[in-house]
Write a protein that binds this DNA or RNA. Structure first.
Lengths: 213, 213
DNA sequence: CGTTAGCTTGACGGACTTCAACGATAGTGG
DNA sequence: CCACTATCGTTGAAGTCCGTCAAGCTAACG
């Protein structure tokens, strides 16, 4: 399987794993830390497509080039797989090919639902969705306390907002007692309210990313 | 190949091809007309994910259920493929599996770029992008004149706007001489201006959908 | 101790939504 | 053939949310 072939790579915070529009020679799996995929459009505006967390695969759906750059949000550890090898594996082994297809389909599904959230929800709804997502995906202790690795600007560029709006909305949610935060620590105090704001019915929309398993 | 197995289906305007969250028993290829994929969220808000045009495949990336309903925007002709058969084909034939994966990856890429456009562009930019896209994809005569099959509400729900804003913005673009329209007919008079508004550099972002070839 | 980068808060303006009314077009039944 | 009605598109006025510009604040680092 894929697990046997990756080569370990360590990437320091804010360093690039691969550039935007770079030849897609490698795919990756994140083992530790946090990675963002970013694109700068012709107007110079920055857009963060996803935040990747430990266990996530990325770069597997790229055709000839990676449309988005990948950068370490925090110090990160990852495995690198040569694309040629992945393709060769898929060519030989039907189950690998199927798993790759499922992975891409999951990403597509996640992208579609993100599209829903970003075009229909207010700033509070979008932020609630992200926080809820992070609380679910981040490796946390046993409580609802998480350590947000990314800054306000990253969050803003991910949600289609400005850093100011993110900041204001965070303090709003804090004032309402829905979350608490200080430094990079965030505590979800009312998960149900968060889901309500994000427009999620109680038990829906699981596995938003290309995670492990 | 797939081409040999589809069964022809005709669907009248505004009829449903498959419902939201319906079991994904079939995949489709559109031969004529226009189809939209739609989802109603828990707030009752409607979201149009894509407009499918002749040649487009859809429903192939769905896992167990179709997350979006598919409805005929205009009278449509399509081919239906049983999913079990498609999966069986993919299991047997590596090249089919690879093509399915490429198709899903193309959709994912398109969804990511739509995400960019919808979160970063103004109403005029979004509309310009859609019109440019339609002018490129719709089967048209030899001029820049196209026949928009979908109504203002469909466009609005696709772009994350209201029908009123779409209408207003259309008349703005008309006033600027960038487009002309009357009834369902739209003429692109200044394609370069459209691309500029949409934030597209001259020769970029091709094949936005899972089209034929 | 000074500097820098990130977060917060305030004031203002603009873009889009909402609510409402009106006009045009097509389909229906008398 | 002609109201009648429903649907869609357009236009107007008012309100809201978020972006922009600007300043202050904190914490980390040299």
């Amino acid at each position: 399987m894929l697990e046997d072939f990756g080569t370990a790579v360590a990437v320091a915070r804010d360093r690039e794993i691969h550039g935007q529009d770079a030849a897609a020679e490698s795919c990756y799996r994140l083992l530790g830390g946090c990675v963002r995929t970013v694109r700068l459009d012709e107007g110079g505006r920055r857009h963060v497509a996803e935040f990747l967390l430990p266990g996530d695969f990325f770069g597997f759906a790229s055709a000839h080039t990676h449309d988005f750059a990948a950068q370490a949000v925090s110090d990160a550890a990852l495995l690198r797989y040569p694309r040629r090898l992945v393709e060769a594996l898929a060519e030989r082994d039907g189950s690998v090919s199927r798993r790759l297809r499922e992975m891409t389909a999951r990403d597509l599904r996640a992208a579609c639902f993100r599209l829903l959230a970003l075009t229909r929800n207010s700033a509070a709804g979008r932020l609630a969705g992200l926080l809820h997502d992070m609380a679910r995906r981040l490796p946390h202790g046993n409580q609802d306390v998480i350590d947000l690795p990314m800054g306000r600007t990253d969050i803003a560029d991910h949600l289609g907002l400005t850093a100011e709006t993110v900041s204001r909305t965070m303090t709003l949610l804090k004032g309402d007692g829905i979350i608490w935060f200080g430094g990079t620590t965030v505590q979800v105090r009312d998960s149900a309210a968060l889901e309500r704001l994000a427009g999620i019915q109680p038990g829906a929309e699981p596995e938003h990313t290309n995670s492990s398993r």
